[in-house]
Structures are given as C-alpha cells and as structure tokens.
Simulated assay, not measured.
Amino acid sequence: MNIAVFTDTFLPMTDGVVSMILNSSRELIRRGHRVKIFAPKIEGVEKYIKNLRNLEIVFYKSMDTPNEEVKLSAVWLPKTIRELKAFKTDVVHFHSPSMIGIEGIIAAKILHIPIVATFHTFLADFEYMKSIGIPKILIKLSSNIIWKLLIFIYEKADAIISPCKYTKKVLLEKKIKKPIIVIPNGIKFNNKQLEFNKKSSNCLYVGRLGPEKNLETLVKTFKFVANKIPSAKLIVVGDGPKKKTMQNLAKQLKISKKIIFKGKIENEKLMKKGEIFKKCALFINTALAENQPVSVIEAMSFGLPIVAIKTKGMPELVNGNGFLCENANPKEIAENAIKILRNQNLRYNFSKASLQKAKKYNISYSVKKLENLYEGLKKITR
C-alpha cells in the first residue's frame, strides 16, 4: 500500500508524536509498503533526514510562531493533490488537526481517498491550556470551542486511532460517531533482557522541555530526592522553552550540579544502545496532560520503574511497575522515587514488570493493527 502521512510536527523536533510517526513509518516500509510524509520544513531538518532511508518526504515552507511547537505552513492544495495522485495514494493518515493535517483531509476528500486520524494530544484539556498560558477565566470558554473544532475535524476521518483506552472513552463521551480503534504507540524493541544497574541512583526524564510537561514540579521533586540520597542525579534528555526555567530553579534550590542536561538526542540514537537508560535507576514523569507518552514506554523497555502522576492514559502504562501519585505534589512524588531507590527488591520487581509490560508495545504489533485498518478502509472505498 501507499500511505500518505500528514503532520504539523516533524524533525528536528523530537517529541512523542514525531517518534511514533517515524517508528511506524519505518516498520511499514520494512513490511513492503511505501510511506510519504507531508510535513513542515523546519530549520535544521536536513541533518536528520539523511538517515531516513526509503522514506519519501514532501516539505511545506514554514515559519515560527511564539509557541515553538506550532509552525505556520504554506500549504498549497494543487501541489498536495498532485503529490497524492503521483504517489497513487491508498490511505491518508493525519496526525495533527492543524494546517497540514487539514490540508490532507481536504485533498483526500477531493480525491476520494480514505482517511485515518490519530488523536495524540488533549489540546482542549484544562491542564494543557493552563500550561501554555491561557488565563483561567478564558479556559472553560476556550475549551468548549476547541473541543467543537476538534470533533468537527476528526469526524472527517473514516476511522480514528486512539493510543489508549482512556482516550477512546473521552472521545466516545464527546459523541464522536466515527469508528475509534485503540492502537498503542509502538517502539522498536531492542532490549531482550533485563539489565539491572544495582549501583545507579540516577533518575531520568526524556521529553520536550515545554510548559505542558510540568517541569518545575520535576525539579522540585528531585530536590527532595537529592536531600535524602546525595549520590542521586537527575538526567534530562530533551530541549525546549522551559530549559532555562529549569536551570534557574535548580540554581535557586542549590542542585544545579546534580541535574545533567543532555540536550536533544535523536530518538534512534537514544534507543539504539540505550546507554542513558542503562545508567539510570528509574524514570520520573510529572506531566499532567499526557495521553500515552512514548518516552515512558521506551524507559520501560530498558526495565526502568516509573514514577508518574495518575492522569489520563498513565494507569494503563504504570501498574505493578512503579508508582502513580494522586497529585502533582513534589514531596509525594519524591517519596515514591526514594522508596524505589532504597529498596533493591522492590526496584528489581518493578524493573522486571516494566520490561514485561513494554513487550506489548512492540512496533510490529501496532503496525500489524494499522495494516489491518488501512486494508479494511481500502476495500470499503473501492
């Protein structure tokens, strides 16, 4: 099959959406399909795409906005239609309800190509909107408007993919009428056995350093951990607008030397040998608006116990392989992290459970479900 993927988020950004698109695209190509990605051309992308063998990409010129996650792309419908025709597209799959995603919908409708959509982000969520600076007084009104827009856009798809059961439940409550299929975010599973690092007391965070990730809580959490376990360090992989805020807070709390910022690391390089994961004892995620974070699944695949906040899809990932905290309370999160760091038996059992649970998220399983969905839609529209 020939699958056209439309996304407003792409390299050199290294968030979970980009990782998921690249993981599934590589696996589809490995299985004999063709994939063409329609994405914004962001400065610095050239050095990343050199290694994307057999992956075809159509770039749209883009410009920055005050929110570095959002790009304004110069979409051009005649160009998009021409590309889809030349590609002999069987399915259009969009991953963002924004400019390029909507371009894909319009072009697919004109050409009578079946459409699949993945619901990645709760853009209308209270915590997400609060994190990006929308005043509290406007959040309820804005949330209602955004949900109506999201429903309008996603209803244009012939099928909607939800990464987890929680998201499917929310979409059904919003009266989405189109079929909703749960297909988890998949990863390339490199680690075959548990490599338990008894000597490490390091905590790890991997992800975008953006306002929606609640990273001040992460730094405050680690202050409590460092007070109790002086040998512990927090390793932070990723980049984003909140990096400076985190560094300033670490300085204020006098733990600057204990937090190591590794910067942005390409996902394939990060996962290939897993050296950073193997140097750590556990993974901490303090985000409040997560759907199904790929970084948590990746950490699980290297046997790391997880400490996170009990929100949205997280209970489906963390169950018997770590602790979920009821609130974004740094002291409570730290206490759970300390329990794991101080108790080798608990940590070992959580590590084994993480590795076992991660096997369910092997990219081959997710892509097999994708193939079945694509094939089914292709038959219906013939």
Rank of each mutant, 00 (worst) to 15 (best):
K233M: 13
I229A: 03
Q247W: 08
K233I: 07
I229V: 15
V237T: 06
F261S: 04
A250K: 06
N285M: 12
N227F: 02
E266G: 05
I229D: 07
K279D: 14
G240Y: 09
K257H: 04
V236Y: 08
T286A: 10
L249W: 01
K244P: 01
K251W: 07
G263V: 12
C280R: 04
T286N: 09
K272G: 02
F277L: 04
I284P: 05
K223H: 13
Q252P: 01
L282F: 10
L253Y: 08
F224H: 15
K272S: 14
A289I: 00
A226L: 08
F277P: 08
L282A: 10
G274C: 11
M271P: 01
A289N: 15
L288Y: 07
Q252V: 11
E275R: 10
K244E: 13
M246P: 05
G274N: 07
I260N: 13
N291R: 05
A287C: 12
F222E: 04
L234K: 02
K251T: 03
E268A: 04
N285P: 06
E266M: 01
F224M: 08
F277Y: 15
M246G: 03
Q292Y: 01
L234G: 06
G238D: 06
N285G: 11
L282G: 02
V225A: 09
T221K: 03
E290A: 14
